[in-house]
Design a protein around this nucleic acid. Structure first.
Lengths: 221, 221
DNA sequence: CAGCATCCGCTTTGATACTG
DNA sequence: CAGTATCAAAGCGGATGCTG
C-alpha cells in the first residue's frame, strides 16, 4: 500500500496492515496458528495467488509474520505470527465485536469457515449458570462442526465433532449465529431453518455477555 | 471496496471500514468531533476530493457517520460520528497502541497534525507522581502547540498555547514524541534537536504507562 | 502438489480542474 | 464551501504457467 505519509500512529499502523487482505491473513494465522501457503489460500477464498505471495512478503518484511521450515516429515514452509504480529489480536477482537451486528446479513455467495465463527462465539458468549454442571453444544454450520464447552462461566470452542453433546444446533449459518449471539429471536431462528435437539435449558444458560452491545445497528436505508 | 464475501465478523467489518482512507476519516471525526468537509480535507492531506466525497457517502450509508446542517450563523454541512461510529473508538485506540513503535520513523514528507499526536499521548502516558501538585507541559511540535496537564495520575491534552507551562519541549516531532513515549533516550532526543525549558523534574514524572509494551519492535532488515 | 511469477483486463485511486 | 468531472497511473482479480 502506498504510504499515507502522516506522522500519526494510526496512519503508520495502516501503512502496515491497511492493505486489502492483509488483516485477513493475520486473522487466519491468529485463529489457526502456523499455516502453510495452501491453508492460507483455503482460508482466504477469492484471493489471487500473486497477491497472497505479495502480502506475505510485505508482512514478513514488516516483522509481523515469519517463515519457518516445518520439522522433517512434513517438509513445507510454515507462516506464523511473530510476537509483534500477536499484538494485533486486540485489534482483531475489536473488529469481531464491531462486526457482530453485521452477522445478521449473510449474502448468498458468502463463504463460511467454522474457525471464523468460533472466535466470534468465544468473544461474545458467556455461561450464565457458571456453577451448574458443564455442558457441550455442537453446532453444525460451516465447513466442520463447532463444539461449545462451558468452562467456569466462559464458553470455549473447538472444531470437530462432539463426543456426546447435550444439545445440537443445525441449520444455515446466519440464523444459528443470530440465535446464539442474541440478534435473532428463537422463533425467527426456527423459521429460518434452525433445528435444535437436546435439553432446551441448555440454550437458556448460554447468552451474550453483558458487554456485548447489540443495538441492532441496522444501517438507515 | 469490493466485499470479501465471507460470513465472518472481521471480514464484514472490513467490508465497511477497510477501504483506503476510511478509518482515517473516522479518526478525524473521533479526534476533532463534528467537522466540515474542508476540515476533513485539512486533516487528510493527500486525499483526492472525489474520494473524500465517495467515502463520506459510503460511511453515511453504512450508518457510521451522519450529515447535519450547522446552526444558523454558520450555514454549512457538518459530518459527525453516529453512535455506531463512536463504537469504532476502541479500534482506533488499538491502532494507536500498535503503531506507537513506528513513531520512531518519521519520513521527510510526513504531514504532522497536533491532534493526531495528542491522542497518542493521552493513550500511553501516565503521571507517575499522582499526588504531587499538577503540572502542565507545552509541546511545540506539529501545526499548533499541545498542552499536557496531569490529572489524578493521567495525562490530559488540549491544543493551543499554555498559560504558564512548568516546562516546554520544542523540536522536530519525532524526537519529541520519542522522548515522551520512552522510545528515545534523553541524550538521543537532544542530539536530534529537542530543546527543553523548565524544571527538569517534570519530565521524570511523566512516562509510559506500565501496559505500554515497548519492545522497540524494529522490523528485521 | 506447494509456492510462487507472469500476463491481461478491469476497477480503484491520485491529481487536477471545474461548478453551484 | 462542498462537492463533481476527467483522465492517467496504480492496484486488484482471474487465469495460466513454471519450478522444485
Amino acid at each position: 500500500m502506498r504510504s499515507y505519509d502522516e506522522y500519526c500512529a494510526i496512519a503508520k499502523s495502516l501503512d502496515v496492515v491497511g492493505d486489502r487482505w492483509t488483516l485477513l491473513i493475520v486473522r487466519e494465522l491468529a485463529l489457526r496458528g502456523a499455516c502453510r501457503y495452501t491453508d492460507l489460500r483455503n482460508g482466504l477464498p477469492g484471493i489471487a495467488s500473486n497477491l497472497l505471495a505479495d502480502r506475505l512478503r510485505e508482512l514478513e518484511h514488516a516483522g509481523v509474520i515469519a517463515r519457518e521450515d516445518a520439522p522433517p516429515p512434513i517438509a513445507t514452509t510454515l507462516f506464523r505470527l511473530t510476537p509483534r504480529g500477536e499484538r494485533l489480536r486486540p485489534l482483531l477482537d475489536d473488529l469481531v465485536r464491531w462486526g457482530l451486528p453485521l452477522m445478521t446479513e449473510q449474502k448468498p455467495g458468502d463463504a463460511v469457515r467454522s474457525h471464523w465463527l468460533a472466535s466470534a462465539i468465544e468473544l461474545t458468549l458467556r455461561d450464565q449458570q457458571p456453577d451448574a454442571s458443564p455442558v457441550t453444544v455442537e453446532l453444525n454450520i460451516g465447513d466442520q462442526p463447532i463444539v461449545l464447552e462451558t468452562r467456569g462461566g466462559t464458553i470455549h470452542t473447538r472444531l470437530g465433532p462432539a463426543d456426546s453433546p447435550d444439545a445440537t444446533l443445525t441449520g444455515p449459518p446466519m440464523p444459528v449465529m443470530g440465535l446464539l449471539l442474541g440478534l435473532l429471536q428463537p422463533a425467527d431462528a426456527r423459521a429460518n431453518g434452525v433445528e435444535y435437539t437436546g435439553a432446551t435449558a441448555v440454550l437458556d444458560r448460554i447468552g451474550p455477555a453483558v458487554d456485548a452491545e447489540m443495538p441492532l445497528a441496522a444501517p438507515p436505508s
